[in-house]
Design a protein around this nucleic acid. Sequence first.
DNA 1: GAAACCTTCACCCGAAAGGGTGATTCTTCT
DNA 2: AGAAGAATCACCCTTTCGGGTGAAGGTTTC
Lengths: 141, 141
Amino acid sequence: MKRTIILYGLALAVLIFFLKFIEYRFLVRDLSLEFYIGAVAIFFTVLGVWAGLRLTKKKTIIITNPAFQFDQGRLNALGISKREYEVLELMAKGLSNQQIADKLFVSLNTVKTHSSNLFLKLEVSRRTQAVQKAKELQLIQ
Amino acid sequence: MKRTIILYGLALAVLIFFLKFIEYRFLVRDLSLEFYIGAVAIFFTVLGVWAGLRLTKKKTIIITNPAFQFDQGRLNALGISKREYEVLELMAKGLSNQQIADKLFVSLNTVKTHSSNLFLKLEVSRRTQAVQKAKELQLIQ
DNA sequence: GAAACCTTCACCCGAAAGGGTGATTCTTCT
DNA sequence: AGAAGAATCACCCTTTCGGGTGAAGGTTTC
């Protein structure tokens, strides 16, 4: 922002001195006033576009929430165990219980037990709610 | 934004008057032409800024982190209808199909149809994935 | 060593979700 | 007026989820 203004100012100064220069060399006889004005117009239009875009350029998208930080305390407060948390994470990725079971090398029944306990502790009754609530509580990203 | 442009204009004016001042001291010449050039420069700068912003309006709307903005275009690109979007929103809140049906005053079958079409369009096969993907695509908050 | 966890797994059952097909009504666009 | 799409609903069937109960083996803690 500041750099843009400074650069703009410098460009402006350079141009004006440049114009002064050619003015003294070639344009004292008023040979092409139209050309002179045209050049100034074009130059400042371009400069204006450039500066305008520069100044209004938005910051890049931040998809992940930078304010997120893993809070073990909140997990403990809810009594969520390590294994249950792993299930929760995979659940949030949209995996089915079977896929979670394959990933954690346990049986489907085990995953179901974990998820059931998880629902009790989060006080929900469906996985979508669990994911939503876990995000609200900043348990997962 | 506007403040930036105003500040910029003021900076420009200051610079020009500064240059004028130098000019008076060292390069006393035809003053009316100089002012004319200055006016043209300012005018075209403003024009350039304005035109630049106008022309790139859509491209510069990039959402910064907390500011979610509804993007109809992305919905259209995926071919997601209004009703499907409503189902998606309620789905993301963790509601069951039956609850969604009650809320929208339609039958369970209708909700299932909408969600099926939604899954096709989002290229997913489960509601958790749909919600996750919709958030990634900034379709929902 | 008993109590309190965690982790693992099994079985049953009902509810919910998902996939497929077809059909009707209504609006909208050409 | 006809085509296209949206919204609605139905019926079928399979898979997945969720709730309940029970149980065995492991660790930690008092």
